[in-house]
Amino acid sequence: MRKLFLILSCIFGVLGIVFTALPMDTLAFLPIGLALVFGLLTLVKSEDHQKKIPKVVLFIGALCSAVVLGKTLLIKDEVATDTQFEQQKMETKKEAQKELEELEGLE
């Protein structure tokens, strides 16, 4: 059972790191939380000399939680200025004006 908990804690630990790096916001707490839970279970089931890996997983989980929380609280959601998109909007508007004129010409 300890081995299973250890494998699961490692898998969710890796997923936690990936989700922390990606812009997943609080969704990253899902694998991090599972990594912490399985890390704790592994720690409980471990002998004294086996506690190194679960402690590392718990440390990584805590670190990732702090990073995700910091990103969520400190980084503001913003839309980048997209000149190409702005240009496209201008062109679409010009096109639309022509199309409306054509439509009026048919009436």
């Binding site: 812009p23 980084i75 959601d77 913003e78 839309v79 997209d82 998109f85 909007k89």
Partner: peptide, 8 residues
């Protein structure tokens, strides 16, 4: 208009 946030 719909634009994804820069992080995405």
């Amino acid at each position: 208009e719909l634009s994804t946030y820069s992080k995405w």
